[in-house]
């Protein structure tokens, strides 16, 4: 498929374009998945989206390694602090979601 695109476009397509395509498709996935969330669980939804958006921790870890490697103190410490902030969110977000979800019970017949 990639080669077809190259033929059609008369040149190589930048990987950014593919990333953008994935981004757009993921917005649609998010749209349909989130509309199917029951309104009763909107608070857990916010807590868990908050936890998963902390996957930005990936950037923080790369920043620490990059900073240590290149000797940039700013990158190192910005990365380390970002990693700690993300960890607060990851652990806090998933655990508080778990705590909330455990409370939702059906009527005992």
């Amino acid at each position: 498929m990639l080669s077809m695109l190259i033929l059609a476009g008369g040149g190589a397509v930048s990987p950014v374009v593919f990333q953008f395509a994935i981004f757009i498709l993921a917005i649609f996935v998010g749209y349909y998945v989130v509309w199917s969330v029951t309104p009763a669980l909107h608070t857990p939804l916010m807590a868990v989206t908050n936890a998963i958006s902390s996957v930005i921790v990936v950037g923080a870890l790369i920043a620490v390694a990059a900073g240590v490697g290149s000797g940039s103190g700013i990158s190192t410490w910005a990365g380390a602090v970002a990693a700690a902030l993300c960890a607060v969110n990851i652990f806090g977000g998933f655990l508080v979601t778990q705590r909330m979800l455990a409370m939702y019970k059906k009527k005992q017949k």
Binding site: Q19, F23, A26, V29, V33, N50, S53, V55, V58
Partner: peptide, 9 residues
């Protein structure tokens, strides 16, 4: 992972 998650959130 970041691109997809960012779009979802």
């Amino acid at each position: 992972a970041l691109i997809i998650t960012g779009a979802l959130v």
